[in-house]
Amino acid sequence: MSFNNLDQLYRSVIMDHYKNPRNKGEIDEGAVTIDMNNPTCGDRIHLTLQVEDGIVKDAKFDGEGCSISMSSASMMTQIVKGKTVEEAEELADIFSKMMLGEEFDEDKYDLGDVEALQGVAKFPARIKCATLAWKAMEKGVKAE
């Protein structure tokens, strides 16, 4: 697949998550709640996590922001569900390295749609948009 076709595919995945967010909403009972914002651009996220016995049983988000921020939140909630807290933290570390253009173990986890955000690394001003939900999740699993 050519670079342009791959770039177009990634853009369509990002827009799909933005227009059709997965796990949008709030967990009502027994959830950790994290509210964070990016003062630079105004993105904000309200994340709720249900963690039981060291496993992320459910993750939902709400918020306002750009397509990068909201699609990243959608992707993050999908990939951490069913993972242990340690695995969720590892995924956040891998995502952070991906955003910074650093080496990471691509074989450790199937990143699925999350890989579509790799191109954000080329735009330093947008990295905070992409990482907002992930930082909220890290804060939430540490609070557990």
Rank of each mutant, 00 (worst) to 15 (best):
M1K: 07
S2K: 09
N4T: 13
N5C: 10
L6C: 10
D7Q: 10
R11W: 14
S12H: 11
V13Q: 01
V13W: 03
I14E: 01
I14P: 01
D16L: 08
K19G: 11
K19D: 15
N23L: 01
G25W: 06
D28Q: 11
D28K: 10
E29K: 06
E29M: 05
T33C: 11
I34N: 00
I34D: 01
I34S: 00
N38D: 13
P39M: 15
T40W: 06
C41L: 09
D43W: 05
R44A: 13
R44E: 15
H46K: 11
H46E: 05
T48A: 00
L49T: 07
V51E: 06
G54R: 08
G54E: 09
V56A: 09
V56Q: 12
K57I: 00
F61I: 05
F61P: 01
G65D: 11
C66T: 14
S67Q: 08
S67I: 14
I68W: 03
S69F: 06
M70T: 08
I79P: 08
V80K: 04
K81T: 07
K81E: 11
G82L: 04
K83T: 13
E86W: 15
A88Q: 04
E90G: 13
L91K: 01
A92K: 01
D93S: 09
F95T: 03
F95C: 07
S96Y: 10
K97M: 13
M98Q: 03
L100M: 12
G101W: 02
E103V: 02
D107A: 15
K108Y: 12
D110P: 09
L111N: 09
D113Y: 07
A116K: 05
G119H: 04
V120K: 00
V120T: 07
V120L: 08
A121C: 11
K122I: 08
K122A: 14
K122L: 13
F123P: 05
F123M: 11
F123A: 06
R126W: 03
I127M: 04
I127E: 03
A133Y: 00
W134I: 10
K135E: 13
K135F: 14
A136V: 04
M137A: 11
M137N: 05
V141I: 13
K142I: 12
A143F: 03
A143K: 15
